[in-house]
Amino acid sequence: MGVKMRKLKKQMILLGCIGAIFVISNMAVDGRLLTWNNMKIIITHAIFPSFVSWGMMFIFTSGLIDLSIGANILLSANIGAICAMDLGMGYFGLIGMTLISAVILEQLSVNCSVNLKIPSWISGLGMALIFEAILTFYSTIRSKTEGSSNITLVNYREMGSMPYMAIIWIIGFAAAYIIFNRSTLGLNIRAIGGNEGVAKAMGINMKKTMLSGAVVGALFIGMAAIIQESYAGKLASTSGLGSLSTIFKSLATVLLAQSFERVVSMPVGIIFSAVFVTSLFNVLTLIGVPSGTGQEMCLGAIVILCGIISHWRYKGVVK
């Protein structure tokens, strides 16, 4: 019982801290943070990083730090949009094809690391370069034939608007929670992340678990891509690893959630962290920090900060 009480106490403290930060920030921006409309904006913006982070959770926990996720989102969202608009497949094209391509792309990246035994962050970088290149290549052709280099999702955009977004968010949370904490796959992924040797000896098929985890993760990433494509209408191609900045907020979110893993379980922690990180940028915007320069600098600083927090008092060897 004592352990549970201690945990509850920690959760209360965490919640209190978040609340206090909000109140203080609210005062700093003259009450513009905690208005109904602003909170709605924050929630809307927190949904995309939440999904990306849940996806990362299923992939990163087993030790695969895949950085191609950003390029994956851009490429699969564009494929989905092309299927929906150009090929006239409608919602089926948008949802089905985005999810399918997200899964396939993720499998490519993860397989590359698992089968070729390349460190996952390098295989991720390599794959990100390749995915970006494919999209760039397509955009160059498209700009010649269609006039504009990126496809615009004109119709089928309900999933990027309230209240549908919020509903999808809640369903996504429930799915992430159950799979991560209450399914054999989730427990096996966590076992691999916690102690590979034990997991192996207990008959857990490492490769299969990691790859299945990547499938589940990719579904969440695909959902994130759909939501973002529907919300923004258009996702432009990037080059030179520019896609990395797409997932930076999510990276911060995952790291933050990881550092509070002892207090709240990851899927829940991700919701809190996503809202927290999004609010932070909301505050920055309210203060008047320009995006692209000042906000990006803060983003880098925040990821570093989250990295520090999540490795606080870590004793092992860090490369």
Binding site: A191, G193, A199, G203
Partner: peptide, 21 residues
Amino acid sequence: VQELGVVGSLPPAINMFLGRT
């Protein structure tokens, strides 16, 4: 086994039945 150990980040019960959940 001497060197094996357990998964620290999972509850004891799950450790006991790991792989057979």
